[in-house]
Write a protein that binds this DNA or RNA. Structure first.
Lengths: 150, 150
DNA sequence: CTAACTGCAAATTCTTTGCATTAGT
DNA sequence: ACTAATGCAAAGAATTTGCAGTTAG
C-alpha cells in the first residue's frame, strides 16, 4: 500500500482527514534533516504551497504529535522543533549534540546502545522506587561545535 | 563570612550590586524545592515584598544564570524554571523525573554516579568524533507519576 | 452533504525593553 | 554623587483561538 493511503488510514482511524497541507507537512518532515520548527516548515513549503498558513502547520503538528507520528523537542532557542518519530521517520534512534553558540544540532547514534542499556536499567529501578510509569527518556549534550570554538 | 557578604562580593566582582530584591530571590531559590519559574518566585515573595516586580525577577534570574549561580531548565510546560546550581545550592547532583500529566518534577540522585560515568565516557568520545567541546549534559525521564496513573 | 479543515486576524502567554525614578555603595 | 537597579507600561515573539468560508470523504 502506498504512503498516501497509509497516512490517510492512520488519520481516519482517529477521525481526521488527510489533506494536502498535512501530506506536505509530513513529507517535509521526512525529507529534511529534522528538528524543524513550525516556521521552518512554513518557509520550506511556502514557495510551492503559498496557501498553507502557519496556523495550519501548528495545528497539524499538534495532531501528529498527539498521534505519536512526530515528537516535540525544545532545544532552548525559544521555538519548538519537531521530528518524525522513530517509527515513522527514516532515522534510527539517536540523541542530540547541541551547539550553544550557533544552535547547530547533531544527531549521533554512537554509544546509543550503551546509553540505552543503562537508561533501561535506570528506568526500571526508578519506576519501582518512585512509582513512576516511565514513557520517555532524554539524553543530550550541549557544547561548542567545531566552528564556534574559534 | 556570612551569606549576605558572600553574595555581595560575588555580585560586586561583576559590577553588580546586592539589592533587597536579589537577596530575596536567591533566598527563595534556596529555600524551596527548586524548579521555580519567574512567576512562582513572584507569587512566593509577593506577600512579604509587594514592591518587587516580575521584571526584576526576570532580570535577576538572567544575571544569576550568567554568573553560574542559577541554572535554567525547560521541562516542556512553556515556562522557564530555575534552580541554584550545584555549587551554590544545597542539593547534590541530581537528574529529573517529570510527570507529563501534572508536571510534577522529582529530583533523583539514584544511579546518578553510574549515569555520570557513562556520560563522561560518551562525552569524551563524542568530543573527539564531532570536534565538539562539551560543556553540559542533560539526562531526564518523562512518564506518569503515581497519582496520574489512576 | 456535513463535519472536519483552513486562513486570517485577534487574543494569549511568557519574556524583554524603554524610560523616568529610586537606591546601593 | 554616580551609576546600577527598579517598576510600570509597552513591545516582542511564539503559539493558540474564534469565526466564517472551503474541502475531503
Amino acid at each position: 500500500m502506498e504512503r498516501h493511503h497509509q497516512w490517510r488510514n492512520r488519520l481516519q482511524d482517529q477521525g481526521y482527514r488527510l489533506t494536502i497541507s498535512r501530506e506536505v507537512i509530513i513529507d517535509t518532515l521526512g525529507k529534511n534533516t529534522g528538528h524543524l520548527s513550525a516556521e521552518d516548515i512554513y518557509m520550506t513549503i511556502h514557495g510551492e504551497h503559498p496557501s498553507i498558513g502557519l496556523t495550519t502547520i501548528y495545528r497539524t503538528l499538534e495532531i501528529l504529535t498527539r498521534m505519536g507520528i512526530t515528537i516535540k523537542f525544545d532545544f532552548g532557542d525559544g521555538r519548538t522543533r519537531y521530528e518524525l518519530s522513530e517509527e515513522y521517520g527514516n532515522k534510527k534512534h539517536h540523541h542530540h549534540l547541541i551547539c550553544t553558540e550557533c544552535a547547530k544540532i547533531i544527531d549521533y547514534t554512537d554509544f546509543v546502545d550503551e546509553e540505552l542499556e543503562l537508561l533501561h536499567k535506570t528506568e526500571n529501578e526508578l519506576s519501582l522506587k518512585y512509582k513512576f510509569k516511565i514513557t520517555k527518556h532524554l539524553i543530550r549534550f550541549y557544547g561548542l561545535c567545531d566552528n564556534c570554538q574559534k
